[in-house]
Design a protein around this nucleic acid. Sequence first.
DNA 1: CGTGATCTTGAGGGAATTCAATGTCGGTGG
DNA 2: CCACCGACATTGAATTCCCTCAAGATCACG
Lengths: 221, 221
Amino acid sequence: MLTQASLPNSAIKTRHTGTESGVGAIEMIGTVMSFVRNAEIYGEGEQVEFLYKVISGTVRTYKVLADGRRQIGAFYLAGDLFGFEAGDEHGFSAEAVGDSKVLVIKRSAIFALAARNSDVASQLWNLTTRELRRMQSHIMLLIKSAHERVAGFLLEMADRSPASNEFELPMSRQDIADYLGLTIETVSRTLTSLENAAAIALPSARRIVLRDRVALGKLSG
Amino acid sequence: MLTQASLPNSAIKTRHTGTESGVGAIEMIGTVMSFVRNAEIYGEGEQVEFLYKVISGTVRTYKVLADGRRQIGAFYLAGDLFGFEAGDEHGFSAEAVGDSKVLVIKRSAIFALAARNSDVASQLWNLTTRELRRMQSHIMLLIKSAHERVAGFLLEMADRSPASNEFELPMSRQDIADYLGLTIETVSRTLTSLENAAAIALPSARRIVLRDRVALGKLSG
DNA sequence: CGTGATCTTGAGGGAATTCAATGTCGGTGG
DNA sequence: CCACCGACATTGAATTCCCTCAAGATCACG
């Protein structure tokens, strides 16, 4: 459930000027909601009702297995849309990594729009296939060695950040570990090892400087 | 490239009576093509032009890394649609696992249809999100132990086969290994170990009998 | 300055890989 | 027909990589 506030019956409330990325009319209708660090945005098994766009902060989607292992499906940064899921039920849960603002859009509104406007429909398709590609590259990460996974993850984050060679990680080591299918210790060790190899610098735990993209690229498989 | 035959300019050639699964009008227009074992259906980097439906046989999509490692993205059995990819270029290649017949449908024909008919558009969306779900469960497989991966794979294959407790694997151990991110030896060892644990039987290398679904389910995480 | 959360580092063990050899099956030609 | 061959699969031994368990270090915050 949405823990921060109950959503008004008609989600069409604020007009949002979608200037960030060229996805067009889809994000024009919705409500901006705030979530504190670790707040749940939606839960696994819940009815799929909305689409979401990160306004600020970072969101993670994840699934918890019976034995407690957690797999993070994806991280969504400011500007990213999420909530494209199969079926009527969410297969993953979504949480705010840090304090975040999220634009919440009723699905039915989008579908109604899409039924009348084929441009919107094709946008919807594009966003979904983009999501597909994200998953494909996630799969490609998961089959690699720990060094390759971490190097690949850093390159991915760098490409998604405004400044390409230096950035702040919004998520914890545990989050990274659960995204990469590694333990927190292995992530930590690998980062130190990359620093020792002069591929990156770590001014602080969360701050990453890419020193040698070529070396990272080689490492990332 | 399509290695088996060159595709006619107008792909609208045969009328295919889509009786298999309820996906509707999308598959009504197309050309059936035959591919021998290991024949390429499309290649990574090629222009995305078609959608495909497996009529008989099995198809694998895959990607080869610089160092030669191969990752299989998915297996498609008779009745499955594939070729839902992001962007204009194929991110994966597709090959026939064994001799196969594939219905090839021009994308532009579908898109034209979708633009006019919102039912077709929503079908397209449904098929794509189904693909998303497939990838999600693939990701969930890849973070697990070798035993869990193999057990999960067998359960997945069983669920997709007509007879649910006994089936023939269309693919080699190498294919399975490349799908699960394991080595061929580990796959082989794990299967023998599952057989010794009485969870499965292996009348022949390719024939699988599920003896204890509960045990397999536990193993699969 | 103390406390808890997060991150790093170390030592040891276990799971999967690598390298190597043997076994099995299906097809082809003698 | 069956002997041989190549492709595919299984098994074994040694090694490597990552995980587990454990302790310390660093950071944010009251």
